[in-house]
Computed example of a mutant assay.
Amino acid sequence: MKKQKEKNKNSTRELMGITEITDYSLVTPYGELVYFIIHPTNISVLSESSVSSRIYALMTVLKGIAEIEMLCLNSKENFDDNKEYLKKRMEEEENPIIRKLLMQDSTNLDRMQVQMATAREFLIIIRLKNEKESDVFPYLSRIEKSLKDQGFTARRADNSDIKRILGVYFEQNVTTDRYENFDGERWVVLGDR
């Protein structure tokens, strides 16, 4: 019973295995994770030789970094439950005007989903282990420069990017503009007694 009470007191970060979110990384018991966000290229419009050169460029980057991990996230919303609900409502609805409005809503959701279908985020993750603090930033800068030299639009994720990535990964939440450090943080007024 005591163990259960202690377990209920764990923070969300502890449950996810996160020690800290810094200005540039996610600290876990298994190392410090630094994320580089790579903006995707629409390869469907490239020639075969251009696609091959993009693959070779990525291979060149990957060969130069030993501690690399990759992650691809859908940074789009899924409207399947909403569309299923609208479909069910259309079948039940007797009023033709309401049925037409429901059909328009469904069509609008389809249109939104098609527009966001290519909303992907590609992340290169560097797991830092026991690196000296003085060596970390030059190392990360070399990685970022290597990505850019190979023609990738990339940048190192900051604190707000990391929170958004966690929100998308764990909750599929792509609509929140700003993530709080603590639940209800936006309602706290400092200096007001």
Rank of each mutant, 00 (worst) to 15 (best):
S146E: 02
Y35H: 14
I98F: 11
I21M: 02
V188K: 14
G191Y: 10
E133H: 07
S47T: 13
R156L: 10
K132L: 06
Y24I: 09
Y139F: 13
R155W: 07
L147E: 00
I165A: 01
Y169S: 12
K129G: 02
F79S: 00
K9I: 03
I97P: 00
T41I: 03
C72K: 10
E144R: 05
E131Q: 14
R111H: 10
Y24F: 08
A157W: 03
S53T: 15
A157G: 04
Q113Y: 11
L147I: 08
A119F: 04
G31S: 07
Y56N: 09
L190A: 11
L86G: 03
G191W: 08
Y85I: 15
V168L: 01
K76Q: 08
E67C: 12
D161L: 06
R186S: 14
E92T: 13
T176V: 12
M90N: 06
D183P: 00
V45L: 09
T175V: 05
K63R: 13
L71P: 05
S47A: 12
R89A: 01
I97M: 05
S52N: 14
S106F: 01
D192Y: 13
G31F: 01
R89V: 00
K145N: 13
K2D: 07
Y85L: 15
S49T: 15
K76M: 05
I125C: 04
P96Y: 07
V34N: 07
Y56C: 02
E14N: 04
F170R: 07
S134V: 09
K132E: 10
K145C: 10
D105S: 04
P29T: 07
C72T: 13
Q113C: 04
K9M: 02
L123Q: 03
L15T: 00
F79E: 00
R156K: 06
H39T: 01
K100W: 09
K83N: 11
R120E: 11
E84F: 15
K88Y: 11
I165R: 01
N8V: 05
A157C: 07
K132A: 09
K88Q: 12
I126A: 02
W187P: 03
A154W: 07
A117Y: 05
Q113F: 12
L26V: 08
D149Y: 00
E93Q: 09
E14G: 08
V51H: 10
M112L: 12
S52D: 15
M1F: 02
R155I: 06
K87G: 10
S50E: 14
D80K: 15
M90L: 07
Q172V: 13
I37E: 13
V136N: 03
R127D: 06
V34T: 08
Q104Y: 13
K145M: 15
V114T: 14
R54S: 02
M59G: 14
R178A: 04
V114C: 00
F122A: 06
K2T: 11
E77G: 14
L147A: 04
M16N: 02
K145F: 12
N95E: 08
K2L: 11
I143T: 03
G31R: 00
M16E: 06
